[in-house]
Amino acid sequence: MTKRNRLNTNLIISVIVVLIIGSILYKNSSYYISSKHYLSSKEEKRSFYSLKNEKNTQDGKSFDFDKFTGKWSLIEFTSDKDTKITIKDNTKISKGTFYIVVLDSDYNIIAKKNESNENENENGSIDFTTPKSGKYIIRIVGKNAMGNFDIKISESNNINLSHKDFFE
Rank of each mutant, 00 (worst) to 15 (best):
K112M: 14
T69P: 07
I159P: 03
R46K: 15
G142K: 02
F128R: 04
Y31D: 10
S47M: 12
S34Q: 07
I93G: 02
S162R: 11
G142V: 00
K88I: 09
F98L: 09
S62Y: 05
N119W: 06
T78E: 14
S50H: 11
D150Y: 07
R139S: 01
H163P: 03
L161T: 07
Y136T: 03
N117M: 11
K92D: 12
A111N: 10
T83P: 05
S105F: 00
Y26P: 05
G60Q: 07
D104Y: 07
Y107R: 02
D82L: 11
N158L: 13
N119K: 12
Y38Q: 04
N148H: 13
V141R: 01
K81R: 12
S162P: 00
S162W: 00
N148R: 14
N108M: 13
I137Y: 02
K71A: 05
M146L: 08
G70H: 00
D106I: 00
K81M: 10
F65V: 10
R46Y: 11
D165G: 14
N114L: 06
W72A: 04
F128Y: 09
S156E: 13
G142S: 08
G147N: 03
K67E: 09
N123C: 02
I109H: 03
G124M: 02
L74K: 02
D82R: 06
S154T: 13
T129Y: 04
S125C: 03
Y32G: 03
W72F: 11
V141Q: 05
S30Y: 09
L74N: 03
A111I: 10
I137C: 02
P131S: 04
D150F: 05
F63Y: 15
T57A: 14
T57M: 14
Q58S: 15
N160R: 15
E54P: 08
K88T: 05
T69D: 10
E122R: 08
K113N: 09
K84D: 15
S41N: 10
S133Y: 01
S73D: 11
K113I: 13
W72K: 09
E44F: 03
F77S: 08
I138C: 08
A111V: 10
D82S: 13
I109T: 07
N123T: 09
E155D: 09
F68T: 06
K52C: 08
Y26Q: 06
D106M: 09
T78F: 07
K71T: 01
K36F: 14
T83S: 11
K113A: 14
D127N: 12
M146T: 15
L74E: 00
S156I: 05
T69K: 08
F65E: 05
P131L: 05
Q58D: 15
G147L: 02
E43F: 10
F128V: 12
I85W: 01
F65I: 11
N157H: 14
E76N: 10
I151N: 01
K88N: 13
S41M: 14
G134Y: 01
F48D: 04
S34C: 09
F128W: 02
K95F: 11
E122N: 11
K27L: 15
L103Q: 05
K132W: 01
Y38T: 06
K71D: 01
N28I: 04
Y107P: 01
S156P: 08
D127V: 14
D59Q: 14
I93M: 09
Y49K: 15
